[in-house]
């Protein structure tokens, strides 16, 4: 499961940010509770990579209590990547479902 989770975690981050900018802490808690990431801390290297790849950007916001917080925002490119992933994932998931249920996957001819 580790490899599979790692592969989809970044798309889950992008999907969570689709609703609006996200705070690293909240993203980490959400994905960890959903068992998408094994541990909360691993979200930060992932966010850092997504930022370098231009799929998310960051913005600092003053918080009412405590120091300024870094928020992550989905970029145009990130949104595109997510839109490309979604139908692929659905088709992939359907295929895996069928195979798990003992069907032979439909060959594309």
């Amino acid at each position: 499961m580790g490899q599979l989770r790692r592969g989809v975690a970044e798309y889950c981050v992008l999907a969570l940010l689709k609703a609006g900018e996200g705070y690293g802490f909240d993203l980490a808690r959400t994905l960890s509770e959903a068992h998408i990431v094994a541990s909360e801390g691993t979200i930060y290297p992932l966010l850092s990579r997504l930022r370098r790849e231009g799929l998310v950007s960051t913005v600092w916001r003053q918080s009412e209590l405590g120091p300024a917080r870094r928020y992550y925002v989905l970029t145009e490119m990130g949104s595109q990547v997510l839109d490309e992933f979604t139908p692929r994932w659905q088709s992939f998931r359907n295929t895996v479902d069928r195979i798990l249920q003992g069907e032979r996957p439909a060959s594309k001819e």
Binding site: R6, S32, A38, S39, E40, G41, T42, I43, P45, L46
Partner: peptide, 11 residues
């Protein structure tokens, strides 16, 4: 919960 340094490095 944050994870071991090795896990974070691997990510």
């Amino acid at each position: 919960h944050l994870g071991s340094p090795a896990e974070i490095a691997e990510a």
